[in-house]
């Protein structure tokens, strides 16, 4: 099994608005053609009891996510993190992010292939 880089992305999907900035920011940074990016935004409409729904967007890191190694080496934030319109992506050590995750619900922690 490949080893984890020890770093990851913490997404607060309560606040992700589905603005697609992360997806395009990554494509710009690494010059991916349309259809490819380190992160892809997914829309989920959850159906709930009593004819109610909840609308969620979730940015999903793909096999192309390298956790912005060239940027983080220079002390810069990953491009998706920097541009996220809702400021709802956090980059960091998985242990630190896991602690953050305990503070509020509706979060996911990704450990991409990197």
């Amino acid at each position: 099994m490949p080893k984890s880089s020890g770093y990851g992305l913490l997404i607060d999907y309560e606040y992700c608005t589905g603005c697609y900035s992360c997806q395009v920011a990554c494509a710009q940074e690494y010059r991916w053609p349309a259809g490819m990016s380190g992160i892809r935004v997914i829309e989920v409409v959850e159906r709930l009891p009593k004819d109610r729904e909840y609308l969620v967007y979730l940015p999903f890191p793909t096999e192309l996510c390298i956790l912005c190694a060239p940027r983080t080496k220079k002390g810069l934030e990953p491009s998706c993190v920097k541009h996220c319109m809702a400021a709802c992506i956090k980059y960091g050590k998985i242990e630190d992010l896991a602690k953050e995750m305990g503070k509020k619900p509706r979060m996911v922690l990704w450990s991409p292939r990197a």
Binding site: C19, Y20, S21, Q23, V24, A25, Q28, K82, H83, C84, M85, A87
Partner: peptide, 10 residues
């Protein structure tokens, strides 16, 4: 504050 929309990033 550093953020930018998809249309501008394109």
């Amino acid at each position: 504050q550093g953020r930018l929309c998809a249309r501008c990033l394109a």
